[in-house]
Structures are given as C-alpha cells and as structure tokens.
Design a protein around this nucleic acid. Structure first.
Length: 277
DNA sequence: ACAGGATCCTGGGGGC
DNA sequence: TGCCCCCAGGATCCTG
C-alpha cells in the first residue's frame, strides 16, 4: 500500500492525536510481523510519552521522551490509526497502544509485511538507516542529483526510482505516475537519461508527490490514513492502473508491462525510449 | 552489478 | 457454491 504520500498522511493525521500522550499499556497479537515483537520492548515503552511523530521515506517514527524511537513500516497493507478504545477491534490488529483520553493507537496489517522496531535512541536509528543506505528524501535532492545517480547505472529508470537507496519513499504507483509526468519510458536505460530529462524527472516527482499528499494519498484497497479516512489521489491517476484506457495527453492506449516483477503502466506514444528532448 | 524469480502473507476478483 | 489462478501501494534473499 503505502508510499511516501500515504505515510506522510498517516503521520500528519497522527501527530496531533499522539503527541504528548503517554503509552499506558501495550497489547500484542500472537502472529509475527516482519520483525518479531520483543517482550523487552513493553517495559521499555510503557510509561513513556510520545514527543514527536515524523516520517523518513516510508518509515514512521515516534520519538519517545525516554529517547527511544518506535519505528513502523506499513508494508503493503499496514494501517496505523488512533481510535476510541471503545471502538470494536478489526481482524488482523496486531498491536494496540493505550494512550490517554480513552484512545488507542492501533496497528493493523492483513498481509503482515509490515514491521515494528524499537530503537534505543536516535543514534541507533541513524545507524540503521545508514546500514540500509536509505537514500535522500525526494524533496531534498538538488538538481544535479538525478543525473548523477542515473549516469552510473544501466538499470532501467523505473527500477532506479523504486530503489530506496537512490531516493526514499517512491513506490510502484508514484514511479509510474512520475515517469508519465516526465514523459520518460520506464524501460529507458538510466545512463541514457540526459540533463533535461533528469530535470524533468526531478520536477515531476516533486509535483506528483505534492499533489498526492494534498489528496491524502491513494487508496486502491486497504490504505487508510491515521484517522481511518481513505485517500483520493487514485481518482487522478494518469498511468497507474489505466492500461487499456486512453492516455489523457494524447489518446493512445496506456500499456501495461512487467518490470522487476512489478506491473508498470505508461503511454507508448508520450513516453518513448528515443526521446526528442 | 543487475535482472529475475521466489518468499513472506491474506483476500478479492474473474473464469469455469 | 466451490475451486483455481492471478493480482496487489514492499522488501529481501538467492540464483545465474
């Protein structure tokens, strides 16, 4: 499910509802997530207050007053919401944190590709991000960055966009939407991307992500924000999931191919391998 | 280095 | 109604 715009929406929704709240109790389910929940974490967390909620790539960070950082990844179907404790519990709810005001922070994940980890302090978290070589935020790269990264690989641009070490937060939907916006063929070899194309790509990614955040992300099936609301950007898709439909720019039929095992949608007329510009 | 495939899971949809 | 197959916003491991 969740790429940068969805994760950003969750964090913005949750921030006012969790910041300043103390975690009074934790309930865990038996089923494992991608990382197993450590029993020690209960003791380390209970009694702490959440000071801040933030995002890094597709990761959600809760900074506790104990200096520990509670970190979530939503995988494909993760949902992180604050609800009244009286609200009935949905299937696949794996973690419940009791907050003040008779509210709970709940983590639900149907496919259990999501993960939760507790880091002792922000240094330990930084080390984790460094070890995984997580790339920069797409809004913080300077104009030369994309060209720089592209020229040193022959991989196709779609795969480069999905690589979290290149840029953090872009997933399958926003890769396709950004390439459509930039009029680049997803199978274009990265080292053949020229200066103008790289700049178009940088601008396109920022534009697509910004608009998607404004629309609270995209809901295909499972995604909801931190208050349980769906996103609406799926109504503005121009490429993703539109195979067989006419291109909004030129009327050509949108194609679907598979790249790196991920379905990929593009306009064969607007997005050519050989590009005039 | 990199592509491709399998894997971790559950559920929805289509075809028969 | 059931069954089987394919598909899904991600990441990681293994092979060639």
């Amino acid at each position: 499910m969740p790429e940068l715009p969805e994760v950003e929406t969750v964090v913005r929704d949750l921030r006012p509802r969790v910041c300043g709240q103390r975690i009074d109790a934790i309930k865990t389910s038996k089923l494992p997530l991608r990382r197993e929940w450590s029993r020690n974490w209960n003791d380390a967390i209970v009694g702490s207050r959440i000071e801040e909620a933030s995002r890094r790539g597709k990761w959600i960070l809760f900074h506790l007053d104990s200096k520990a950082v509670l970190v979530f990844h939503l995988g494909m179907t993760g949902q992180l919401t604050v609800v009244p404790e009286m609200q009935s519990q949905l299937d696949h709810t794996h973690l419940i944190f009791n907050l003040g005001r008779a509210e709970q922070l709940r983590f639900r994940d149907i496919r259990r590709f999501g993960s939760v980890t507790l880091f002792h302090d922000s240094t330990a978290l930084d080390e984790f991000f460094q070890a995984s070589r997580l790339g920069p935020e797409p809004f913080q790269v300077d104009p030369s960055y994309w060209r720089e990264r592209m020229r040193r690989t022959k991989r196709c641009v779609k795969n480069v966009l999905l690589d979290q070490q290149v840029v953090a937060g872009v997933g399958n939907i926003y890769a396709d939407e950004s390439l459509f916006e930039a009029r680049l063929h997803p199978e274009l070899a990265a080292d053949r991307v020229n200066r103008q194309q790289a700049e178009r790509l940088r601008v396109a990614i920022e534009k697509v992500l910004t608009r998607a955040i404004e629309k609270r992300g995209s809901t295909i099936r499972n995604y909801v924000g931190g208050s349980g609301l769906s996103g609406e950007f799926q109504q503005e898709f121009q490429a993703y999931g539109r195979n067989g439909k006419p291109c909004v720019r030129c009327g050509e039929t949108i194609s679907r191919i598979v790249i790196g095992g991920r379905s990929t949608h593009f306009c064969p007329r607007c997005q050519r391998i050989r590009n005039r510009s």
